[in-house]
Design a protein around this nucleic acid. Structure first.
Length: 329
DNA sequence: AAGAATCCCAACCGCAAGTTG
DNA sequence: GCAACTTGCGGTTGGGATTCT
């Protein structure tokens, strides 16, 4: 099956469409239908290849195309369908009347993917990211933050060296907790994160040798007395109100994927929201086995070990950092 | 005010599947 | 069954718009 020559044919125009070209294309299709896309450009008097005409029509000129921002309901639908279908944009577009696959793909790549990543979810699996060594810089920053909070009242009486040591101790305590969590996950037969660890360990080499050697021997530095490891991991810093968001207001997946069919939204529901697309679990990839409702309001998520015990992992957005750090500015 | 950086999306590219003769 | 042709799809990119410094 050879490739058909397309826009590389001599003399055919490429690039943005003019209003005049749009008009010609629309007029022709209104009168004759598109028929053969390959033949259409000549018949319509356009100096374009058929492929370009088809794309322009399906992605822009088609009369049933819905314009404007995606609604929260549409976001929800895209997220749900993507968690099941993956990057099958055309399949997802079928459940969003008036939206094109290209538009959905762009929206995913520029908005939803970033949101998921920012919230600590793998955009491909829709599961929490467990390669937390990748988030090490953020965690260390968090440790610094905690030290700042605790030290503030008396820092004018504290030598700089002591501050430095305290920060160092907090970092190491953090890393120790991370390593313990990693070990727990690696020990879990159901863990999907094992293969991410070797690569992630490379990031540890960014630490100085004394820091690495300290990881194995460190035991509760005095600066962190009264603060248990779990507190650190849960990111229980001073109470901070996160701005509420409509994003993820509905749970993407209700409960677990065990013994249950997945119901994604499709078709029409209230206020035009697509609803009720039933899919058999046999035909679907495994879904996330955790509730991720109200993620927009959460600054943490969890991982589960083999015993089903969950460990909270902090997920901090950039805006949160900005807001929080400005308190200290 | 202006240059740099980032965001956003229309359009392109190339592959693969489907169709036709 | 085969080759040529057509269509559909997902990934990528160019450049205009917007935001930041």
């Amino acid at each position: 099956m050879g490739r058909s020559p397309c826009c590389d044919e001599n003399g055919l125009k490429k690039g943005p469409w003019t209003a005049e070209e749009d008009q010609k294309l629309t007029d022709y299709i209104d009168k004759h239908g598109h028929g053969s896309w390959r033949a259409l450009p000549k018949l319509a008097g356009l100096n374009r290849c058929g492929k370009s005409c088809r794309l322009r029509w399906t992605n822009y000129l088609r009369p049933d195309i819905k314009r404007g921002k995606f609604t929260p309901e549409e976001e929800q639908t895209i997220l749900q369908l993507h968690s099941v279908l993956g990057n099958k944009w055309s399949a997802i577009a079928k459940h969003l009347p008036g939206r094109t696959d290209n538009e959905i793909k762009n929206f995913w790549n520029t908005h939803l993917k970033k949101k998921l990543i920012q919230m600590g979810f793998d955009p491909m699996t829709h599961r929490p990211r467990t390669d937390f060594f990748a988030a090490l810089p953020q965690l260390i920053a968090l440790a610094n933050l905690r030290q700042l909070v605790e030290q503030r009242p008396w820092d004018e009486h504290t030598p700089n060296q002591l501050q430095t040591e305290a920060v160092q101790a907090a970092k190491l305590e953090y890393l120790q907790c991370l390593l313990q969590s990693a070990a727990a996950i690696a020990a879990s037969p159901s863990s999907s994160s094992i293969n991410t660890i070797p690569g992630d360990l490379e990031q540890i080499s960014l630490l100085s040798p004394p820091q690495i050697s300290s990881l194995s021997s460190l035991s509760s530095p005095r600066i962190l007395e009264g603060i248990n490891c779990q507190d650190l991991v849960t990111g229980q810093l001073p109470d901070i109100q996160m701005p509420s968001s409509s994003f993820f207001e509905q749970p993407i997946i209700n409960g677990t994927n065990q013994n249950s069919d997945y119901t994604a939204n499709s078709g029409q529901g209230e206020n035009g929201t697509p609803k009720s697309l039933l899919m058999s679990e046999n035909s679907l990839p495994p879904l996330a086995d955790f509730p991720i409702s109200n993620l927009g309001d959460a600054c943490s998520t969890s991982i589960c070990d083999a015993d089903g015990n969950s460990t909270q992992l902090p997920i901090w957005s950039d805006s949160f950092y900005d807001q929080f750090m400005s308190e200290f500015a």
